[in-house]
Simulated scan of single mutants.
Amino acid sequence: MAPSTLCLCVLQLSLLAGFASGLQITSPGGISLEKASGESVTLDCQFKLDTEDSGPLDIEWSLLASDNQKNDEVVILYSGDRAYDNYYPPMKGRVHFNSADPKNGDASITLTGLKSSDTGTYQCKVKKAPGIGSRKMLLIVMVRPAKPRCYVEGPAEEGKDVVLRCTTSEGTQPLKYTWEKTSGSKTLPASAVIDPAVGTVIVKNASASASGTYHCAVGNRVGSEECILQLNVTPPSNTAAIAAAVIISILLILIIIAIILFCLWRARNNKKYEKEICNEIREDVPPPSSRISMARSLTANSKCSSLGSMSPSNISEFHIKSQYDKVPLSEEFERPPSHNPAPPPTVTRMAGANISRMGGVPVMIPAQTRDGSIV
């Protein structure tokens, strides 16, 4: 070996010996911690300085990225005799140093109100020139199972497979489910099949003896919760009768709806027909004559027939009767009784002798029948 090479090896050994006697992390590294969400955890990092470590003390805690494409996050920092805990917003206010003066060799920190997002690898790095040391630890924050829900899936009838389910809304895997019967014989039916990973119990060909109270518990490494289920296995139902009743009910409802629609349709057609009859105008029928015009026409006809059959004996009666045959006008109906005209004077019939005595000449007028022929 050349003298230059020998000198270089001696120098490297001396440097390694110097570093070995410098700053040292005394807490064990490579450990794993499991905690439940909402709890607190202390990440231990004790160190020891050497007389040669005379530089400023720097302590850095960081959360290492699980992906090489991402950067490590500084959680808390101590430098220049001051602590800085605002580097990582998700942990702001939840992380602090255990010691008020980390220079005494305690760089441990405490995390409060743990969340599942706090899971990861943490590194403690202590630097005091020329010494430097670091350690890593894994923190696993597990979510405690939420209270599960127990229920029976499908009908619980004799002769059928009854499924009991137990589910929880949250909880860190792996979750383990356990079932037990707490009433009667306090043993699960012999035909029961349990799936502890999913939380189901299938009771094959269930019978009435399977009825009772069942207890389900779900848990992981940080906690457990439970629920209770009451199972009542009933006799099989008459599905054919139920189906027939449903069909008959549907038919009755359809018939009632059809009757209602028919009644509404008929009422609508009748109303439409009445409306068309009211609006129909017939051209071949003359308008009805008024009461007064009909009365006047009847009076005129009666006068004409009376004149045709008139004789001296009834001439005077015609004049009197004609006064009463007149149809009163609308004004006369409205006229007060005090304004009505006086009745015509009565004409007395005179005999032929009286007419001769008074200087008149009696005249014989042939008689006529009602149809106007001379008698």
Score class of each variant (00 low, 15 high):
residue 1 M to T: 13
residue 9 C to I: 01
residue 12 Q to I: 07
residue 15 L to E: 07
residue 19 F to C: 12
residue 19 F to Y: 11
residue 26 T to G: 00
residue 28 P to L: 01
residue 29 G to S: 11
residue 34 E to I: 01
residue 35 K to R: 04
residue 39 E to L: 03
residue 46 Q to F: 05
residue 53 D to P: 11
residue 56 P to Q: 06
residue 61 W to M: 02
residue 64 L to D: 04
residue 65 A to D: 01
residue 66 S to P: 02
residue 73 E to A: 08
residue 73 E to I: 04
residue 80 G to P: 11
residue 83 A to Q: 11
residue 86 N to V: 06
residue 89 P to C: 05
residue 92 K to Y: 08
residue 97 F to P: 08
residue 101 D to F: 06
residue 104 N to Y: 05
residue 105 G to Y: 04
residue 109 I to R: 03
residue 110 T to G: 04
residue 112 T to I: 05
residue 114 L to Y: 03
residue 114 L to S: 04
residue 116 S to N: 13
residue 124 C to T: 14
residue 130 P to L: 02
residue 134 S to G: 02
residue 138 L to A: 04
residue 138 L to K: 05
residue 139 L to F: 04
residue 141 V to P: 09
residue 144 R to I: 10
residue 146 A to S: 08
residue 146 A to C: 08
residue 149 R to W: 05
residue 149 R to F: 03
residue 150 C to P: 04
residue 150 C to Q: 06
residue 152 V to F: 04
residue 158 E to Y: 06
residue 160 K to P: 00
residue 160 K to L: 01
residue 164 L to K: 01
residue 168 T to V: 06
residue 172 T to D: 02
residue 173 Q to E: 15
residue 175 L to N: 00
residue 180 E to K: 00
residue 186 K to I: 00
residue 187 T to A: 00
residue 188 L to W: 00
residue 191 S to R: 01
residue 193 V to K: 02
residue 198 V to D: 13
residue 198 V to P: 09
residue 201 V to G: 00
residue 204 K to T: 08
residue 210 A to C: 06
residue 210 A to N: 02
residue 212 G to K: 01
residue 213 T to K: 00
residue 221 R to P: 04
residue 222 V to F: 03
residue 229 L to T: 03
residue 232 N to H: 07
residue 234 T to V: 13
residue 234 T to K: 06
residue 237 S to N: 06
residue 240 A to E: 14
residue 240 A to G: 10
residue 243 A to N: 04
residue 246 V to L: 11
residue 250 I to T: 15
residue 257 I to H: 06
residue 257 I to R: 09
residue 261 L to Q: 15
residue 263 C to W: 11
residue 268 R to E: 11
residue 269 N to W: 13
residue 270 N to F: 08
residue 277 I to W: 09
residue 277 I to P: 12
residue 281 I to N: 05
residue 284 D to G: 13
residue 287 P to C: 07
residue 288 P to I: 05
residue 291 R to V: 11
residue 291 R to H: 10
residue 291 R to S: 14
residue 293 S to P: 08
residue 294 M to G: 11
residue 295 A to V: 09
residue 298 L to A: 09
residue 301 N to W: 09
residue 306 S to D: 01
residue 307 L to R: 12
residue 309 S to Q: 12
residue 309 S to T: 12
residue 312 P to A: 10
residue 312 P to I: 08
residue 315 I to W: 09
residue 323 Q to A: 14
residue 326 K to C: 14
residue 334 E to F: 08
residue 336 P to Q: 07
residue 346 T to L: 13
residue 347 V to M: 15
residue 349 R to W: 12
residue 355 I to C: 10
residue 356 S to L: 10
residue 356 S to Q: 12
residue 358 M to D: 11
residue 360 G to M: 06
residue 364 M to V: 15
residue 365 I to R: 12
residue 367 A to L: 14
residue 373 S to N: 02
residue 375 V to P: 13
